[in-house]
Every structure is written in structure tokens, then in C-alpha cells.
């Protein structure tokens, strides 16, 4: 392993290609940490934004006019504002209004840290799109199917959970894939509020070692791989839950 790392030191000396995260253990630890922070942030946001989408789409079909209006307002707010601005707004503006708690060092610190704020703001951002995506799926479920469920004695929630959503899900999976891919890429914005994800640590490394092109190339490759993995998994899932003859 040491020989492998030393080879990159040699590569730098010989060619000027400076991949510090291979031969410098401090940079390597940072890079690995950043990679897992990105994955963790992505997973958290994927999960919560999907939940928001499913619940939001259900509430959109509510009989109560105010519920529908609130959901609509939420969608408009989060879809019409840039995610970076939302991130700043959550962290610097809302974060200031929350009560403070004592930290382990005996200081008053904000209740929620930057990672939590990044997760909240990105989940709400992607969730707003997910609501609309799920709605498109729900509207594609034929009225007759819903009536059939009702005639079998399902109430509104039951028919949503057991009949409408499973069918809607299959219809909207391609659109959902798109949005989730975007979400993974949008996690890089968390670097603005100092969440140590991939872009943030890369920025730290290239500031120290002035190896911007190498780090940029590394970032691109890592994201191609990460998103590729997500797309591959989603496609497998899409195939696995396909209902023969439905939606084609």
C-alpha cells in the first residue's frame, strides 16, 4: 500500500500531476471523509425528499381547501427560489432565530448544525419537485381503478397506499430518477455553509496544494461514479417492480 501511495509522489515529481490525496495521509483522510459526507447527505436527502413527495402528493388530493393551498404554497416557495439562497436563508437567517443550546465546550451554539440545515433545505427543495412528480403519477392512474378500489371498501388513505401509489410510483419513476440525480449533484451547494462534503474538501485541498485541475477532474470522476451507481440501482428497481402490460 505504501508503495502505491509513494508512486503518486513520484508521479508529481516527474509529471507535475499532483494527486495529494494519495500520498498525503492528511489529505487522504479529508477526501475519504468528504466522500462519505456526500454519500450520507445524499442518502438523508433522498429519503426525506421522497417522503415529502409522497405525503405532499397525498395532501394535494385532500378535500380541505386550506391543506391544498398550504401544499401549493410550499411547492411554489421551494421551486421558485434558488437552492443556494435557501441554504443561506436556512443557515444564517432561520438558524439565528432558533434557541441556543450549550455545546460540549460550554458555549451557546445554535440548536442545529450546518449538516442538519443542509439536509433540511435540500430535502425540502427536492421534496417540492417530488410532490409534483408524484402528482403526475397519481393523475395517470385511471379514475376507474380508483373507483374499483372504493367499491371494494377501501377508504381514501387505503386506496392511496395500496392501489394508487403503487401504480403511480411505476409511472413516475423515470421523472423521480431525474430529480434524485439532480439532488445528489445539488449536495455540492452545502459547501457554501461549510459542510465538509466532496466539493468543500476538494476546495480545501486545492487551496493548500494549488492543484485545481487535478481536483476538478477527481471530482467529476467521483460524481460520474456516484450518480452512475444511483441510476443503475434505480433502473434495476424500475425493472424489478415493472407490471407487465401496464404503462407501456
Amino acid at each position: 500500500m505504501e508503495g502505491f501511495f509513494a508512486w503518486f509522489q513520484w508521479l508529481y515529481d516527474e509529471t507535475g500531476i499532483n494527486l495529494t490525496y494519495f500520498y498525503d495521509s492528511f489529505d487522504r483522510a479529508r477526501m475519504i471523509g468528504g466522500f462519505f459526507t456526500t454519500i450520507w447527505l445524499s442518502l438523508v436527502c433522498l429519503f426525506f425528499s421522497s417522503i415529502i413527495g409522497i405525503v405532499g402528493a397525498w395532501l394535494q388530493g385532500s378535500r380541505l381547501v386550506w391543506t391544498r393551498r398550504i401544499v401549493q404554497g410550499y411547492i411554489q416557495f421551494f421551486r421558485n427560489t434558488p437552492p443556494l439562497v435557501q441554504m443561506y436563508f436556512f443557515f444564517f437567517a432561520l438558524g439565528n432565530l432558533l434557541p441556543r443550546v450549550k455545546s460540549e465546550f460550554g458555549f451557546m451554539e445554535p440548536m442545529l448544525g450546518n449538516f442538519t440545515w443542509a439536509a433540511i433545505s435540500l430535502s425540502f427543495f427536492a421534496g417540492a419537485f417530488n410532490v409534483e412528480i408524484f402528482r403526475s403519477g397519481i393523475e395517470a392512474v385511471p379514475e376507474s381503478t380508483r373507483e374499483a378500489a372504493e367499491s371494494l371498501g377501501y377508504n381514501r388513505l387505503q386506496s392511496y397506499l395500496y392501489v394508487v401509489l403503487p401504480l403511480a410510483f411505476r409511472v413516475c419513476l423515470p421523472a423521480l430518477n431525474n430529480n434524485l440525480v439532480n439532488l445528489v449533484k445539488t449536495t455540492t451547494l452545502a459547501y457554501a455553509i461549510a459542510v465538509p462534503e466532496l466539493l468543500y474538501v476538494s476546495n480545501q485541498i486545492w487551496s493548500d496544494s494549488v492543484n485545481v485541475p487535478e481536483m476538478m477532474t477527481t471530482l467529476l470522476i467521483l460524481y460520474v461514479a456516484l450518480v452512475g451507481l444511483l441510476v443503475w440501482a434505480m433502473h434495476r428497481w424500475e425493472r424489478a417492480i415493472r407490471v407487465p402490460g401496464y404503462g407501456t
Binding site: F26, F92, G95, N96, R100, S103, F107, M108, E109, P110, G113, N114, A192, I193, A194, Y200, Q204, S207, D208
Partner: peptide, 29 residues
């Protein structure tokens, strides 16, 4: 930043500009 992190063990929370840092410092981040 690297030195403060590597030699003194601090957790560096780095922002883009000083305005963000002073806000974060004020709010106790």
C-alpha cells in the same frame, strides 16, 4: 486552515468570505 487542523486538532469550518464567518461566529457556530 490545514495547519490549525493538522497540528492543533481544531475542526475547521471554512466559509467563502469574512461576512459569512463573522455571522457564524456571532451565532456561535
Amino acid at each position: 486552515n490545514k495547519k490549525t487542523q493538522e497540528e492543533f486538532g481544531a475542526q475547521i469550518v471554512a466559509f467563502k468570505g469574512t461576512a459569512e464567518v463573522y455571522t457564524a461566529l456571532k451565532q456561535g457556530s
